[in-house]
Design a protein around this nucleic acid. Sequence first.
DNA 1: AAGCGTCCCAACCGCATTCGT
DNA 2: CACGAATGCGGTTGGGACGCT
Length: 255
Amino acid sequence: MGRSPCCAKEGLNRGAWTALEDKILKDYITLHGEGKWRNLPKRAGLMRCGKSCRLRWLNYLRPDIKRGNISHDEEELIIRLHKLLGNRWSLIAGRLPGRTDNEIKNYWNTNLCKKLHTHQNSSVAKKNSNQSGHDKRKSKSNNMDPHPKKESSNVVRTKAVRCSKVIINHPQPNMKTDHQPMAKPLEMVNVQEAEDNNTSRDFALDANMEDVWLSDFLNSEELLMPCEDTMEDWSGNNFLEEPNLNYPHGLTSFL
DNA sequence: AAGCGTCCCAACCGCATTCGT
DNA sequence: CACGAATGCGGTTGGGACGCT
């Protein structure tokens, strides 16, 4: 695909994985566990590079995978997390059980990004009409049904949970129905208080504390999306470049 | 039915970060 | 501490699916 191969070894398979390769990889990892990706292909007898195996496993073969059918709640959560975290797909994915960074990234790029633009345009146009729908596919995507055609196809849709860096102490998020996407019953930690107490740096270093804060933040009314007013300014994702803002100092370092 | 254009997503890449010696 | 290897991450791409003409 344009660039030179990452694994310059000749004879390696590239492109779409076959069912046999999937089976070999899955069986091998079931037996030996994850890791040692570099050597895995050789040991498993796969003509793939380690990176490719890892990606295939993480995004496709791992058990307890959810694929497709991103719910409205999940979508809202993605939007809010993206506002908070920017393109930190792995972190966002860590907040969405069963979703992977790749899936979320794709979903964002193909659906939410367009939705945003559509929304912005419609805002600029002062709601002259319903959201465009001039593009049939876009319209379909905007109906919270991003994969309808594929769901009926033979494409397997399973993806792994991938909690890379964020420690999630919550029980399985209930995919909130009442503006509480982070179902954790949390003791309310006031961000401003934390800052006032000069504790922000510390809690940013503490994953659990950060988790609490993040949950609190996400539950805040400001981020209840989509909202036209806020929709207009979150495409830039400048919040990470502007350390001050209203966010704790430690967020960037935490990320 | 065929051709064409658009869109989606799996898989790739390079770079960054972490780990091991 | 330095260095190389391994792993993780986010951006990008191309093939295939789909809808329209």
